[in-house]
Design a protein around this nucleic acid. Structure first.
Lengths: 129, 129
DNA sequence: CCGCATCCGACCCGATACTG
DNA sequence: CAGTATCGGGTCGGATGCGG
């Protein structure tokens, strides 16, 4: 069963990435990666159920799979505590932490430029193209 | 209804994006967006056929569709020159240019941390998970 | 030269149910 | 608590061919 780890985690192979951008984006590019990374960056260390609670719309399946990919890419470290109620904690690796400036840049730009996503205004859409 | 233009361009609606990251990533997130943006940022202004040549593996369909999405997101400006052999040029908008620091951060991290993607050694694949 | 339409496969992602 | 298994839909992206 050990093939499961590397199969879906390496979509970066599809991206030749003229520059390194494609590579970096392939690591954080999914729907959930950025969110997970962000939580881990802020909180430092979180267990599975905490992540699940913090990211309301994510399913167990998705959380696990994304976590596994991040782990395979060595961005996140998984720690299993051998206790009676199992406890597993996730935290950023050094490599993951090295992403912090990049993630901040992205977050910063996004915060500054996103228009109303949820309650978007109806009439503001027609730019002069 | 004319929703064709903005339908696929706005997958950011799916991403509630706890932080702005999800929004930003949704704009540059596809397989080709980053590459296209990068070319435009470096070269300043490029016509369709030039982009096509610069990005070897992209198909016309993909190039056009990605360009259209970038245009809809107001990251790229499209200029049609009414000439006998049609000429269309693409360039970054101000909004697009505002991405430059962010794109640089991403590219920088990617360049620094990517391992051999293209000519990756065959035996080195099975890391210790 | 620039662009669009259609078909189609691959992958992403969600829901549900089950296990150690 | 922390996963795994299976099913299935939706979207992304590639090939080909046609239109302005």
């Amino acid at each position: 069963m050990r093939k499961t780890t590397s199969s879906n985690a390496l979509n970066e192979k599809k991206i030749n990435a003229t520059c390194g951008m494609g590579y970096a984006l392939s690591l954080i590019g999914g729907r959930w990666k950025s969110n997970i990374l962000w939580r881990l960056l802020i909180n430092g260390k979180l267990r599975y159920s905490e992540l699940l609670r913090h990211i309301p719309d994510i399913s167990e399946r998705m959380l696990v799979s994304q976590l596994r990919e991040l782990e395979a890419d060595q961005l996140v470290k998984r720690t299993v505590h051998p206790e009676v109620p199992p406890r597993v904690e996730y935290e950023m690796t050094d490599l993951g932490r090295s992403m912090e400036p990049m993630l901040n840049s992205i977050s910063e730009w996004g915060e500054k430029h996103r228009r109303a996503i949820d309650g978007d205004p109806p009439s503001a859409a027609h730019g002069q193209v």
